[in-house]
């Protein structure tokens, strides 16, 4: 189960060219990564780092300049794979003149599913995303949050095995964000694979099993979120609240073992730190794969599936 790859990307490059075929931007440079079945995978990166490009290459909306992609064991350009894929675009690019019911009806018809089931699922999804009160209103009258929700509903209409979410929480209020994250976790619980890209780090940290950080079209960091964020040189004790005496005693014990108490408080290590460090490092030393362990911390990120050539 762990070994089954839902997505395999090998040496993927993408060059945008202008009308005359001249090279304009290299959006992706030799990207290789795998996404395993049942995991929530996050693609991170600043604007223009290539994460949306990667997603669109996976969906066949863009064609790779070089390299290979297999999604659900099929090439990205294959239409049949779409039967098992759900996609939520960055902004919900839906048909604004349709209402919620018509939207789900329309997208549902594009899949091979009986009419009965289609109607049932549409009804369920509308309720699930909390649009029951607005099901007959045209999408152009929807608020941003409502549009995201109907977008998610259309992505799930076919009960997909693989869900791709482009900035799923952008534009949502805290409650909406929470609901979206719960939904993603629920999808994972249902055994679905989720690939999302985002720059809202807290969200990624909360839901993703593994992440990849891209910068300027290059893969900089990849690994399990818990591993990437754990500081191996430090030990964190979590106790119930201690009074001052007890604290002093603990300090003594530590001194005896030649250790120092660095900080007393609540753990705050976050993905944000990692992200910012990665970006800073990439700016300082372009072209190098960033190793979180290098600057003192001896973290070993999960090895990349294929050797990524340095620079």
């Amino acid at each position: 189960m762990q070994t089954e790859n839902v997505i395999e990307i090998r040496n993927l490059s993408k060059v945008y060219r202008d009308f005359w075929g001249r090279r304009k931007v290299q959006a992706l440079k030799s990207l290789s990564l795998d996404v395993k079945k049942g995991e929530v995978f996050g693609l991170l990166g600043p604007n223009g780092s290539g994460k949306t490009t990667t997603l669109k290459l996976l969906l066949g909306l863009l064609f790779p300049s070089d390299g290979e992609i297999r999604v659900l064991g099929k090439p990205a350009a294959d239409v049949d794979k779409n039967e098992r894929i759900g996609y939520l675009p960055e902004e919900s690019y839906l048909y604004r003149f349709l209402n919620a019911e018509e939207t789900l009806e329309f997208y549902g018809r594009l899949f091979k599913m009986p009419a009965e089931e289609r109607r049932k699922r549409a009804d369920e999804l509308i309720k699930q995303v909390g649009l029951d009160h607005a099901r007959r209103r045209q999408l152009k009258e929807y608020s941003k949050g409502m549009t995201r929700r109907i977008g998610l509903a259309q992505a799930l209409i076919n009960d997909p095995d693989l869900v791709m979410l482009d900035e799923p929480t952008s534009g949502l209020d805290p409650i909406g964000t929470r609901e979206m994250k719960d939904m993603i976790i629920r999808l994972k619980e249902q055994g679905k694979t989720v690939v999302m890209c985002s720059h809202l780090l807290a969200d990624v940290q909360d839901v993703c099993d593994r992440i990849a950080i891209l910068y300027a079209g290059e893969l900089k960091v990849m690994g399990r979120v818990d591993e990437l964020l754990s500081e191996q040189d430090e030990t964190q004790l979590l106790t119930s609240r201690l009074n001052d005496e007890a604290l002093a005693e603990v300090r003594q014990v530590l001194e005896r073992h030649n250790a120092k108490m660095l900080k007393v408080g609540h753990p705050t290590a976050s993905l944000e730190d990692l992200f910012l460090r990665t970006v800073d490092e990439s700016r300082a030393r372009p072209g190098r794969r960033f190793m979180p362990g290098e600057d003192g911390a001896a973290g070993t990120p999960a090895p990349a599936p294929a050797a990524t050539p340095e620079s």
Binding site: L59, G60, Y87
Partner: peptide
């Protein structure tokens, strides 16, 4: 232009 086609071609529409 409105990218609504994206949601269609990522479905099994030929």
């Amino acid at each position: 232009r409105a990218r609504s086609l994206h949601t269609v071609v990522t479905k099994p529409a030929r």
